[in-house]
Design a protein around this nucleic acid. Structure first.
Lengths: 262, 262
DNA sequence: CAGGCATACTCGTATAGACGAGTGGGCAAG
DNA sequence: CTTGCCCACTCGTCTATACGAGTATGCCTG
């Protein structure tokens, strides 16, 4: 027999035209917002809410699915439904590709994560030549084939970002850029050594719900969108020398940009 | 009696350990991805899928709810379930606040929308003095009360963005900035006239699922995240003179930034 | 012909029940 | 005491049924 739910929740309004499962979702949402249920805490079980409200189990589950879609809670099989904790956020500053950061040697992600006191990892490294997609080809100026560098970034064991860099073969082939580890300062440092002095970057940002594949590689909870960032790097001659396609768990990132007013 | 579904869908694999509703969702998703069902097109009805797969209606609905959560489809009561069309996208360039754009007179949103051939509107205008939230107060440098300018932007009748500007009272009170229509060039032009020469902007970008209130004001379909943008404007003395808090329908925007490589 | 109603289709909401599977604690056997 | 099993509790999946409410169509009535 399930014990009584902790008196945080009110009653239903039978006269309301608001659907019962919405009323329940509303009450739970409000209780969470007011901090009655804290981050990571367990909500009343389905059985308890069935008892408390006198509704059927599917109705309670329906309420939970509303909150799940809002990214407020997540269910764990065999354990319960929990208030989703806000993970530590990685802040991307707009000067993160400044030359001065590149001169230190270590990869930006590692340095930054260490500074924030978290444990960074990079995995799923893959470097290979392949056919450029229509989009990448357009951005790089009609190239056929490209060098693709894929990798996944993790913070304290949690995957937060999956990125692929595309470079024209005439630039990258046979250079350290085509190696799994391109050396200190990353591929941007190598590009400059190869005579492609970087001039500026262009970043395009979208947000959307993840595909099933993205849910898998980023281990995303339901109700968590992704930020899709496409960066193009231009050298001093105005040539696009790299396109980097990045998909980030939206709950792990804040992007920050500085714009001149001129 | 519902007619037969259009032969696009396969059978279930009873030996698979993948849940039936997921298998159905997979098949529908693939059919959509392959263009078997086009944008705006109606999917087979629940009854038709019940017949086709020989499952109960709740199982079919469960499949639909998966696809809805992914933002792929949306249901219309009394009509059917449709492939969600991708709305026209508004592209925000990082130079959109450049002084040269301000000198023309009309508001940026209007000019830009007209150029793109769409019909822009601004509504829900509200200008009032109020207590600054903790966050706004911090960003503006410990001000107590602020002038808040709220407005909603629509494109071809569809709400796409809801924005609130906060300005310190000592700057805005009694000026055209406190009027519903601040005049040509918007509040940034007025700020400069008042001696606050704008130096740069800082923008913070997050993506998340919308709150119920945001779903309402932006008329968001389920499975559509929002982009939350917080911009702070700094004058030549380094003082924060405005904070603009913007919530955008993520399916209506692409943000674009230009970063120097130095 | 025009208006209104009936009807059949659509999805929305809710109930009641069944079984499966993951988790964790307690109890019993070794 | 340790090991292993059982059981209670959790959410996951699925069925079957019922009624409500929005939409579109076509027929019937005036």
């Amino acid at each position: 027999m399930p014990s009584l739910p902790s008196g945080f929740l009110g009653d239903l309004d039978p006269t309301s035209d608001r659907a019962v499962f919405r009323q329940i979702a509303d009450q739970l949402r409000e209780a969470i917002d007011r901090g009655r249920f804290k981050e990571g805490e367990k909500l009343p079980s389905e059985a308890e809410l069935v008892d408390h409200y006198g509704v059927s189990r599917m109705t309670v589950r329906n309420s939970f699915s509303v909150l799940q879609g809002e990214g407020l809670v997540h269910a764990e099989h065999g354990k319960g439904v929990f208030v989703r904790p806000r993970p530590p956020v990685r802040r991307l500053a707009s000067d993160r590709f400044a030359r001065r950061h590149r001169e230190q040697g270590k990869a930006a992600f590692i340095v930054e994560a260490n500074a924030a006191g978290s444990h960074p990892q990079v995995d799923s490294l893959e470097v290979k030549e392949e056919k450029a997609s229509q989009d990448v080809s357009t951005r790089l100026g009609s190239v056929r084939r490209v060098l693709a560098r894929r990798r996944r970034y993790l913070l304290d064991g949690r995957p937060v970002e999956f990125a692929t860099s595309y470079l024209p073969l005439d630039i990258a082939r046979g250079t350290p850029i085509a190696e799994p580890n391109p050396g200190p300062g990353g591929i941007y440092a190598r590009l400059e050594e190869l005579g492609h002095r970087l001039d500026h970057f262009e970043e395009e940002i979208r947000a959307r719900m993840p595909s099933p594949a993205e849910v898998k590689t980023l281990r995303l909870a339901s109700g968590v969108p992704v930020i899709h960032l496409i960066r193009t790097a231009f050298d001093a001659e105005g040539r696009a020398v790299e396109v980097c396609d990045t998909v980030m768990a939206a709950d792990a990132y804040v992007l920050s940009y500085q714009l001149p007013a001129t």
